[in-house]
Design a binder for these strands. Structure first.
Lengths: 352, 352
DNA sequence: CTGAAAGCGCTTACAG
DNA sequence: CTGAAAGCGCTTACAG
């Protein structure tokens, strides 16, 4: 009577199937070396028992450490944007380290394709990783790299920007078109008299996928809402402050009655600096990203709205997706769009 | 030579301290029955080794299941607001269940104090919980309940609203004053001519802590920014649709030139319904919460801005805080303010 | 105050 | 194709 203890998972299955637990283990993990007949018998019992393996015990016994690779741009002097995803990734790492995850970081320079190729190569040379989190900033090179992942069936997750890839586990990033669309709305709020909007792109690659999607959404807003306006587009490919100022100077000479400015990325603070230096206090300024500089100009009123896409959470989510898929075997969303956050002077203190 | 295997955590500590692992375990968990001298010896070694217990092994061996109780309002027909926190809590539960957490739910009706008292009593009657997550919607009753928690040293976390409580582990919710402050800014955007703003409170307890904080922040915005305006306050304590309409009817009769309306909670959709029925299309409407009804009125333009505080994340965060504190012994923020999100027609599809 | 031993639910060689 | 046994790093009675 006393021996009437319930056996736990594998033991109970083994007892019912009249086999050893080693055999049960083989079936659970779909390893070879089990006769079809015992296999199906065991599978039936597993189903009947609605058996869920104890992940704690499994991880403890196996001692396996899953190795993840992270391939993202390094934070530059110019902008600390990529510090945020990195922070999120580290937070996720912290959280799951105790469950046997190790993370290796590989960085590249956004101004240097070769550095991407190099880092990607390092990942390949390393002994096999169990998953990769990357920002596919260079399209062609990224495709090449994920080709390798697909062949080796290594799951990979994109953050911040997306490219076509059939083997992809998940994309985590902003819905760009809608983001531009909202940007236009936030600009419209500042339109009073002239309807002149300056659309500024300060970037070496102003025609990238990201920017053109934003522009598309931006224009679509005015089209859909049938708003009278005059759009002046300004591309500044030399991203030095001096050049930005010069370009703005010129535009304002031509269009002294501009009353709204939209900047497609985090360099909006340059424009704020310019406005401040010129004391153009009445101009409504909208831009991107919650960087240090931008926060300051938001606080003192030179920037009116910042649009943000939770860069830290992108990193966190990205790593956790890999963990959920690889370790916990949980389902993962193929596309996870970040929200489009509006940050103002009034709510900036509580933004993360 | 072959025996030169490194011992793992407790074993290694035991070897170095020349005691048994049972004694090491006693010290690690601060259990009694260890002489001061061995205790300090072991503690020293633990420190030197920078020992981190293997949580996997610990949970597996102990077999202890931590039991958490959740005490929140149930989603009503009127509003599905509380479905979101519940969803977040369930997501957290899913994630940590495998680590030996069980969660019991106790609901109450926001229109019925007794249902709160009943559910609180059920928690007390149950065999001891290891932690409680609750929404202290009824102040007096909540104080009584947490009194019990404090006495039994059961950690508890508040979500959504806060009350004074010394034993509290964490408060997770909105910064109310700032939220009202931002609300005023969003109203100011809609002010054109008359500067008449209607401030509406539709609630049985219009003078609760939450609402008065929001009002304070709201008024402070106009004060700080020295904005000319005329505030008309309307309290509607009968929350039936008919009553709301009647009240609005009256106000609009007195003030036909109202151009902005601010509603302090999720019942803003009633006001939207009213405006729609009257075809008052030019009125700028700002309110709270991302409920189904509100989303619809935001989409079709009757509501201009919704302020939200990530209800789902509040639930998720709330349960995870308990987990972090109780199981992982990690430090937990005493106050975790949610961001103040601005949701518009343009970004609502990506809000969570 | 302290220790030897069994056990948590799995996995992993190894032997057959 | 299958099983017996050791072990993962802890915790838990139990005995002294």
């Amino acid at each position: 009577m006393k021996k009437n203890k319930k056996l736990s998972g594998v033991k109970e299955i083994a007892r019912l199937a009249d086999v050893s637990i080693a055999t049960v283990d083989r079936v659970i993990h779909n390893r070879s070396g089990v006769s079809a007949i015992t296999k199906s018998k065991i599978e039936k019992i597993i189903k009947e028992l609605n058996y869920q393996p104890n992940i704690l015990a499994s991880r403890l016994a196996s001692g396996k450490v899953y190795r993840l690779a992270v391939l993202i741009p390094k934070g530059s002097e110019r902008t600390d944007f990529w510090d945020a995803p990195l922070k999120g990734i580290k937070r996720a790492e912290e959280e799951i380290r105790q469950y046997g995850i190790s993370v290796d970081f590989f960085f590249f320079d956004l101004n240097n394709k070769d550095s991407f190729i190099d880092s990607a190569q390092k990942i390949k040379n390393n002994k096999r990783f169990d998953g990769v989190l990357l920002a596919p900033s260079f399209v062609k090179e990224s495709i090449q790299f994920i080709h390798y992942c697909e062949q080796d069936t290594i799951p990979f997750v994109f953050i911040d920007s997306n490219i076509e890839a059939k083997g992809i586990l998940s994309y985590i990033g902003p819905p760009l078109f809608q983001s531009g669309f909202l940007g236009a709305r936030l600009c419209a709020i500042g339109m009073r008299h002239t309807q002149k909007i300056l659309f500024v792109n300060i970037s070496k690659e102003s025609n990238s996928f990201n920017y053109s999607k934003i522009e598309e959404g931006f224009k679509n807003y005015f089209f859909e809402n049938d708003v009278d306006h005059q759009l002046i587009k300004l591309d500044i490919t030399d991203t030095e402050k001096k050049s930005v100022f010069l370009n703005l100077e010129k535009i304002f000479f031509q269009h002294p009655d501009i009353e709204v400015i939209f900047v497609t990325n985090s360099r909006v603070f340059y424009v704020a600096q310019f406005l401040e230096s010129k004391k153009y206090a009445k101009i409504h300024l909208v831009g991107y990203d919650f960087s240090k500089e931008n926060q300051n100009y938001l606080k003192n009123g030179w920037i009116d709205f910042l649009i943000c896409h939770k860069p830290e959470e992108q990193g966190y989510k990205g790593l956790m997706s890999l963990y959920h898929h690889i370790v916990l075997k949980l389902p993962v969303d193929q596309i996870y769009f970040m929200p489009i956050d509006i940050v103002t002077r009034e709510n900036q203190d509580f933004y993360r």
